[in-house]
C-alpha cells in the first residue's frame, strides 16, 4: 500500500504546489491546505503502515508480539495538524483583510502607490 500512498503524496504535492504559485491569493490558501495534508501523509507513510493496530498498551501492560503502528510519526503529525490549522485560519483571515484593503486578490495588482508606475511596464506575464 506504501507505493500507492507514495503516488497520492506526489499528487497532493503537485496540486498544492500548482495552487501555491497562482496569482490569486485565495488559490494559494487552498494550495497551503493541500501541502499540509501531503506533508502529514508523507511522515505517516515513511513511518511504515500497520493495519488496524494502534499504538496502545494493553490493560495488563504486556506488549503483544505483533507489530503495532509507530507512535512517533503519529505524535509528530498530531502536532502538525493542529499547527497547520492555526496557520490556515490565520492566512485565511489575513487574505480576507488584504482583499478588503487592496480590492483585488491578484498578487500582481497588489502594489503600493509608488510601485504602481514601475510595475505597470512589467505587467506582461512572465
Amino acid at each position: 500500500m506504501e507505493s500507492m500512498l507514495a503516488v497520492v503524496i506526489g499528487g497532493l504535492y503537485a496540486a498544492g504546489m500548482y495552487l501555491m504559485v497562482r496569482r490569486s491569493i485565495v488559490k494559494m490558501i487552498f494550495g497551503l491546505a493541500l501541502l499540509g495534508n501531503a506533508a502529514n501523509l508523507l511522515i505517516f507513510t515513511v513511518g511504515r503502515l500497520t493495519r488496524g493496530r494502534p499504538p496502545h498498551v494493553p490493560a495488563d501492560g504486556v506488549l503483544s508480539a505483533l507489530p503495532v503502528a509507530d507512535p512517533v510519526p503519529q505524535a509528530l503529525i498530531l502536532t502538525a495538524i493542529v499547527i497547520g490549522f492555526g496557520v490556515q485560519a490565520f492566512a485565511l483571515v489575513l487574505i480576507k483583510r488584504v482583499y478588503q484593503t487592496v480590492g483585488s486578490d491578484d498578487q500582481d495588482v497588489m502594489v503600493t502607490e509608488n510601485q504602481g508606475q514601475e510595475k505597470l511596464g512589467q505587467e506582461e506575464e512572465r
Binding site: M1, F44, T50, R51, G52, R53, P54, P55, I77, L78
Partner: peptide
C-alpha cells in the same frame, strides 16, 4: 487513511 492504518487519534 489514518483510521485504516492504526492512527485513531490522528
Amino acid at each position: 487513511i489514518y483510521i485504516l492504518f492504526g492512527a485513531p487519534d490522528l
